[in-house]
Amino acid sequence: MTTIIAADAPLVQYALRLADNALVLGHRLSEWCGHAPMLEEDIALANIALDLIGQARPLYAYAAELEGEGRNEDKLAYLRDASQYRNVLLVEQPNGDFAVTIVRQFLYAAFMAPFWRLLAGSRDATFAAIAAKAEKEAAYHLRHSAEWLIRLGDGTPESHARAQAALDELWMYTGELFEADAIERGLIERGVALDPQTLRPEWDETVDRVLGEATLKRPPDGWMQTGGRTGRHSEHLGFILADMQFLQRAYPGATW
C-alpha cells in the first residue's frame, strides 16, 4: 500500500478539509497527554483531543464513501502525504508553551463553534448530522480556551507576556480560516457548504470580547499566511505525519 491521492471532487475535498483540521489539531493536543501544567488540565486537553479525533473519523468515512474507491478513514488519514492534507496552517503549528496551545485553540474554536452551528443546517444530511454533534463540542472548547486565555492574559506579568506573544505569533494564520475558493463556492451556492465570510462578525465579536477581558491587544491584520487548504503546508506537518503514519508506512497492508 503506497501513498494515495484523494479524489478531487469538491464534496470529497470539503470533507477532507474539515476532517484534516480536526485530526491535526487533535493530534497536536494529544501530544500534551502526561505533560500538562496540572492534572485537571491534562484531562481537559485529552477530552478536547478526543472530541476532535471523533469529529475527524465520520468525516473521513464520508469522504471515503463519496470517493467510492473502497478506502476508509484510516487509508485517508494514514496514507496521504503532506501535500494531500487539506488542513489550515493554524492547527499544525507546534504546541509551544501552554499559552500558544490555548491561543491556537481559542482562535480555532471561536471560528468552529458558529461554523458547526450553521453547518448543522446544510443541505447535505451527513454534514448536517456531523455538525449537530460537533457544535456542542466546539462550544465547550471555546468556553474552556476562552476562560484560560482570560486567566493567562489577566494573570501575572509573565503569563500576560506569554499570552500576548502567542497571539502575535499565531495571528497571521487566522486569515486562512475565512478563505473560500472555487471548490467551496459551488458547494456554498448549493447550500451544502458554508461561506466562512458570514462567520466573520461573530468571530470578531468573540475575539474582541475575550481579548478585552484578558487585557490583551488584538494584533493588526497584516499579511496572512495561506496554503494549507491546497496542500502547501508549513514544515511542521511533515513531522506530524512522520510520527502518525510510521506504522502504516513501515508495515504496509498490515491490520492493526
Binding site: 494529544s30 479525533i53 475527524a56 478513514e73 484510516d74 510520527d243 492493526w256
Partner: peptide, 19 residues
Amino acid sequence: WITRAPTLRRKAALLAKVQ
C-alpha cells in the same frame, strides 16, 4: 505511542486510556 497509534480507533482508545 499516542501520536504513533496505527489507526484512528486505536489512537482514540489509547488516548482515552492514558487520560
